[in-house]
Simulated scan of single mutants.
Amino acid sequence: MIWIDGTLVSKGESGVYGERVVQGYRVWDPYRSKYAALATKRKQRDLDLTPDMKVLYLGAANGTTVSHVADYVEVVYAVEFAPHPMQDLLMVARRRKNVIPIMADAGRPEQYAPLLEQVDLLYQDVAQPTQVAIAIANLIFLRPDGQLILMLKTRSVDVSKDPKEVATGAAEELTAAGLVVESVDWLAPYHLDHAALVCRKVQK
Rank of each mutant, 00 (worst) to 15 (best):
D105W: 06
I136N: 06
D88G: 00
D162C: 06
M151L: 13
I102H: 11
E110C: 10
I100E: 14
R155P: 01
R94K: 14
I140W: 09
V132R: 01
Q87K: 14
V159P: 13
L121M: 11
E117T: 15
I100G: 11
Q128S: 09
R95F: 03
L89R: 00
V126F: 03
Q128D: 07
A93F: 01
L150N: 04
L152N: 05
P144Y: 04
R96D: 03
M91R: 08
I149T: 10
A133F: 12
V119I: 09
L122W: 01
R96S: 08
Q131D: 05
I134Y: 03
T154A: 12
I100H: 15
R108K: 15
F141D: 01
L89K: 01
E110I: 11
V99Y: 11
A104M: 11
M151F: 14
P83V: 08
V119F: 07
M103A: 15
K153H: 10
V99S: 10
Q131C: 08
Q147P: 02
L115V: 14
Y112D: 10
D125S: 04
D105V: 09
H84G: 05
A137R: 07
A127N: 09
L142I: 03
L152A: 07
D120W: 03
R155T: 12
P163W: 05
P163H: 09
